[in-house]
Structures are given as structure tokens and as C-alpha cells.
Write a protein that binds this DNA or RNA. Structure first.
Length: 287
DNA sequence: AAGAGGCCCTGATAGC
DNA sequence: TGCTATCAGGGCCTCT
């Protein structure tokens, strides 16, 4: 589910609620996420104050006192919900990403504060929790990931260096977190559409203008998605709010068979599996 | 040794 | 209705 913009939305709403709040209790109902949640996680976290929540790429970083941290990755299907302790079971009065209702199953982790609790839900269990004990280790944890699209390191020079001696297509590069951090399968298609570049194009054939377009549009698409509250793919029944809005701005993603949205382009959006992932593009204006 | 492909897991949907 | 097959927003590991 979540790429950088969605994780950013979660981070912002979490920060508003749990900054400087003390964790009273942690309940883990299922430790078997992609990485097993360590046995000592409850002890580690209980009675500590959450300094703030930060984010790098698609990772949430919870800051604790004395240079300790824990990471949460949402994988494909992870969501975080805030539930009032009094209401407890039924409603969440605040949705962090895309569900105002707390799902009935797969609520694996509860972090309980004085007046409310946050609940980690993840049907597919591709997400994970990780304890990080020092600032140095935090830095090390992300050391083999590329810069975020907003980073000034993500520039033409960097792109050119990365292109060297590689025989890969641009779509594959864009979702490679070693190249750039935070772009996933949806936004890669959208970025390439705006850049008018065919996802299958080998990076060695990209010219200077192509690379600049990709760099600029990466920033543009992600920022716009954040502004819109992220993308919600699955529609909710019975609710009116709390949905991200960027899915309405998709130009190609999940628009297979429809006419290209670009003015005066008569092309059609195609879907093709590239490197095992669905990829959407206009067969006419993306060269 | 770069790059393709498989795998972790559950749920929604399509097709028969 | 009920079965089976396919696909889903990520990331890591294993082959060749």
C-alpha cells in the first residue's frame, strides 16, 4: 500500500497525537511479521516517552529518549489506527491513512497511551518492527538506500553515475531503493508518464533532458501526492472522509484501456508486466 | 556480478 | 454458489 507519500501522511498524523506521550503498555498479538518482533519489544518500549515520529523513505522512525529508536515499515498492507481507549472496540475517531474503521482481524500490535492507543494492522504481514539502539545504527540502517527524491543529492550528476555500465530499464531503476528511496510501483508509472518516457526504455538510452525530467517529476508527483493526502486504491464503503485523494489524479496507474489524459494525445493506456510488477503507460506519448 | 525471478502472506476479484 | 487462479502499493534472497 504505502509509498513515501502515504507514509508521510501517517507520520504527520501520528506526530500530532503521540509526540511527548508516554507509552503505558504494549500488547503484541502476533509477532510473526516479515521480521519477527523481538521478545523484548514490550519491555523495551513500555514507560518510554515518544519524542517524535520521523520518516525516511517508506520507514517510520519513532524517536525515544537516550538515542534509542524503533522503526515501523508498513510493507504492502500495513495500516496504523488510532483508537480512543474509552471507545476501544468499534470506531476510530481518527484515521491515519485510509480507514476510519478499525479492521476486525490482523490487529497485531497495540501501543497504549493514557487516553488512546495506536494499533498496527497488517493482513499480509510484510511489514515489520525493528529496535535501533544508537544514532549510529540508525544511520547505518539506511546507509545502503539511495537519497529521497527531494534530496539535493538526487541530481543529474548522481543519475549519470548510477547509469554507468547498467543494462536496466528505467521503471526498474525508479523502484530500486538503492537508486532513489521512497518511490514504489504506483508513482514510478506516474513519474514516467509525466516525463514522456516509456518504462521499458533502457537507462543507457536516456538523454540529459530525460534524466532532468525524471528528477523533477519525481519530486513533483510525490509532493502533489502528499498534498492530496496520499493515494487510496481500495475504495471504502459506508464512509465519506479520510480517503487519500491522489488516486483521482492518476494519469496511467490502473487506467488500462482508457484514452491518454494528455491533451491532444490519442494514445491508449497499456498495462505491461515489467520485472514482475504491473506497469502502466501511454503507448503513444511515452517514447 | 548484474539482473531476473521467486518468495514471504492474506484477501479481493475474475472466470468458470 | 462455490471452486480455482490471478493479482496487489515491498523488499530481500537465490539463482544464473
Amino acid at each position: 500500500m504505502p509509498e513515501l507519500p502515504e507514509v508521510e501522511i501517517v507520520k504527520k498524523s501520528l506526530n500530532k497525537k503521540i509526540r511527548q506521550k508516554k507509552v503505558k503498555k504494549v500488547i503484541i498479538k502476533n509477532r510473526n511479521l516479515r521480521i519477527k518482533i523481538p521478545r523484548n519489544f514490550e519491555k523495551f518500549l513500555e514507560n518510554k516517552i515518544i519524542d517524535k515520529v520521523s520518516r525516511f523513505s517508506k520507514y517510520l522512525i519513532f524517536y525515544l529518549p537516550n538515542n534509542e529508536f524503533f522503526l515501523v515499515h508498513l510493507g504492502m498492507s500495513g495500516t496504523i489506527h488510532l483508537v480512543d481507549n474509552k471507545i476501544k472496540k468499534d470506531f476510530t475517531n481518527l484515521s491515519f491513512y485510509n480507514s476510519p474503521f478499525l479492521p476486525k482481524e490482523h490487529n497485531h500490535v497495540e501501543i497504549i497511551f493514557d487516553k488512546f492507543r495506536i494499533i498496527y494492522n497488517d493482513p499480509r504481514r510484510f511489514g515489520f518492527f525493528q529496535i535501533i539502539k544508537t544514532t549510529h545504527n540508525l544511520k547505518k540502517r539506511f546507509s545502503n538506500l539511495g537519497p529521497e527524491p527531494f534530496d539535493k543529492k538526487f541530481n543529474l550528476n548522481y543519475f549519470n553515475k548510477f547509469k554507468k555500465n547498467k543494462n536496466r530499464n528505467i521503471k526498474n531503476i525508479l523502484i530500486d531503493q538503492k537508486f532513489v528511496s521512497g518511490i514504489g510501483n504506483i508513482y514510478a508509472s506516474e513519474i514516467l508518464f509525466l516525463s514522456r518516457i516509456n518504462p521499458n526504455k533502457k537507462i543507457k538510452f536516456l538523454n540529459k533532458k530525460d534524466c532532468i525530467q525524471i528528477i523533477l517529476n519525481s519530486k513533483k508527483v510525490l509532493l502533489k501526492a502528499i498534498q492530496k493526502g496520499g493515494s487510496s486504491i481500495r475504495d471504502f464503503k459506508n464512509i465519506d472522509g479520510y480517503k487519500g485523494g491522489f488516486q483521482d489524479n492518476f494519469n496511467v496507474y490502473q487506467r488500462e484501456g482508457l484514452i491518454c489524459k494528455r491533451t491532444n494525445c490519442k494514445g491508449m493506456v497499456k498495462k505491461k508486466i515489467i520485472n514482475n510488477r504491473s506497469t502502466f503507460f501511454c503507448n503513444f506519448c511515452q517514447k
